[in-house]
Design a binder for these strands. Structure first.
Lengths: 349, 349
DNA sequence: TTGAAAGCGCTAACAA
DNA sequence: TTGTTAGCGCTTTCAA
């Protein structure tokens, strides 16, 4: 009745065919031809396997072999929400290549990341992909990462390598932010402000934004350039309502600004709606730019300018690097960079 | 250097402490007190485990034990896209209960589902959750499901039980569709049409829609009530553009209808935009209703009415049922129903 | 209370 | 070309 109870093993096949157990193993792992085992023997074994509905026990082969055909994926919550094709793309590609994936939500928490990595190690994954920010990459996490046969480290900010042997893939958010600010300045905005959801993942975006302001000689003080709202709870779903509440309670309309750059499209679309209600015109009075470039940004009024990630390229790259390193674990660690881009639409002015 | 190479085993702990290997196992699995093993011995073992950075090998314990603490999750592509909290919610809850999950995209394909289930069986998962439609639930899939210690079957349409031993969880889409049509008729619409993305998952929604029309004595023929567009490719990302193209090429504005019910919010928002461009007013001329109730439905103009799933409740329920059955695999199979609901917003008229 | 021994299903030497 | 043997790391009798 239990799956484990009902299954035939190589031993059963051996008994049934009169072929030795290790020969069965060799044939079933596809090395029959290589070792010149007669077709007749091979056929017998394959037929018996089929008849007995033989299925290899991955736990057993993983225990004794060197590969478990398993990859651990560790991503922050934001990747489980709209428009983030990264873990899904990686997973789909790996599935097609006979790998299974453990997908875990890191919740942007060092403890969760540590525990998950330990768990992955217990399960003898062949590799891990960790998407993280600089501040979560504590020494203890670095040490753990180095213990895996292969590890890919992803981030939207540059990460200090130090002793890390992992390959890095860097989705450069700063490049998109730069383009946004350049555009705003070029079209005459003098007081761009950033809407910052105070999660640690946003510190580097904020830094990029302030940098860009300074580059243009604009006021980058918190007072002038930041509209902060608290980090939202894990499992939060209705971002839109959440933003609206905070605009209301912190009276967004009283701030002096002529452009608003937001760390999400949800925040940006909520801002547009809120400003409209207050009689402020977008983009005439205030330009608004989001982040993530969700498909529905085209559906709102005015269509929302945004920053576009290259998650599809990234997922392809992750799998490519993973495979390379699975085949050659001692490959020197490298770093790939994928810049983000500003996508203009009417709300950007 | 490899994770597997570097790890200490129970044998090492036994050697170091002079305690027997099986005693180490007993202590480490938390049965020390139960078997009245002296605190001193237990402490020695725990300390050695810590010093040696001992981590159990899940493959080994899975091989010999009866549990692998692993659950397989098999969901169609649509769940990997915006606003679908179901696999993520399940996964997060299970992670908190010491389970890891394999998440696989079923791609709405029987072959993929079969292979994935076989793979899960190979990996000796303790249970599977399969979200499927009636037409994908072939006898071969049913047989496979019955081989798992516990299986939860989810769907948005009722599924014939027949010989299936799985517990079922049924997110009733028809109830929401009924509410939509009732609302449209009550507000004076006589020619509601449905925008149908021709994927097999939508046949039951279409049936529910036509049923509801008939109930109100309205024309439910394909000619009058269906605007079909081809199934979109796997990995399709920009739904919005895809819909817009098809509205254009199939001249949506030439059809005679006064309400449009869509199988996604993306489709509905694209329709609103398209109709506006053609000088048609929403909801005055045509009412529009979406499906999924994405947070951004509040951001578009007019705000989009939609059907809301209860994915958060569902994920909780899945995990509850899973746990129950993991603890008592012979529990009689049951069925839970979670109705969907119509959420009114201005676009609904 | 603890230890010895068997075995889960598989792979990989090494012989034959 | 095939079979024998020895584990992988763990849990679980069964004795002591």
């Amino acid at each position: 009745m239990l799956a484990s109870t009902s299954r035939a093993t190589q031993k059963d096949i051996a008994a049934r065919t009169g072929v030795g157990r290790s020969t069965v193993s060799l044939i079933l792992t596809g090395r029959g031809d290589e070792l010149r085992i007669p077709q007749a023997t091979q056929k017998k074994v394959y037929q018996a396997a089929e008849k007995l509905e033989y299925r290899p026990n991955s736990l057993a082969s993983g225990l004794v072999g060197k590969r478990t055909q398993t990859i651990g994926l560790l991503f922050p919550s934001s990747f489980f929400f709209p428009q983030n094709l990264l873990p899904q793309g990686i997973s789909l590609r790996l599935n097609r290549q006979e790998y299974q994936t453990y997908l875990v939500d890191s919740l942007n928490d060092v403890g969760v990341i540590r525990d998950a990595l330990l768990e992955m190690a217990s399960r003898r994954v062949d590799g891990v992909v960790l998407y993280t920010t600089r501040h979560l990459l504590k020494p203890e996490i670095r040490d753990l990462l180095n213990k895996f046969p292969v590890a890919i480290l992803m981030s939207h900010e540059p990460l200090p390598r130090e002793s890390l042997r992992s390959h890095m893939i860097f989705e450069n958010i700063a490049s998109g932010v730069d383009e946004v600010v350049d555009h705003l300045v070029k079209t005459g905005r003098r007081r761009p402000m950033m809407l910052v959801n105070q999660s640690p993942g946003n510190t580097c975006r904020l830094a990029a934004f302030k940098n860009a302001l300074r580059r243009h000689g604009l006021d980058s003080s918190d007072d002038a350039a930041v509209f902060g709202i608290p980090r939202c709870a894990a499992g939060m779903y209705d971002y839109f309502a959440y933003f609206m509440e905070h605009f209301e309670s912190q009276r967004l309309e009283d701030r002096e600004f002529d452009a608003l750059f937001c760390t999400s499209d949800e925040g940006a679309s909520a801002a547009i709606r809120y400003l409209k209600k207050r009689g402020i015109h977008v983009p005439q009075d205030i330009a608004v730019v989001g982040t993530n470039n969700a498909p529905w940004t085209q559906a709102i009024e005015p269509p929302l300018a945004s920053i576009s990630w290259r998650h599809v390229d990234a997922s392809e790259l992750v799998v490519k690097r993973l495979r390379e390193r699975l085949d050659a674990p001692d490959l020197a660690p490298g770093c790939d960079e994928l810049p983000t881009r500003f996508i203009w639409r009417e709300s950007g002015g």
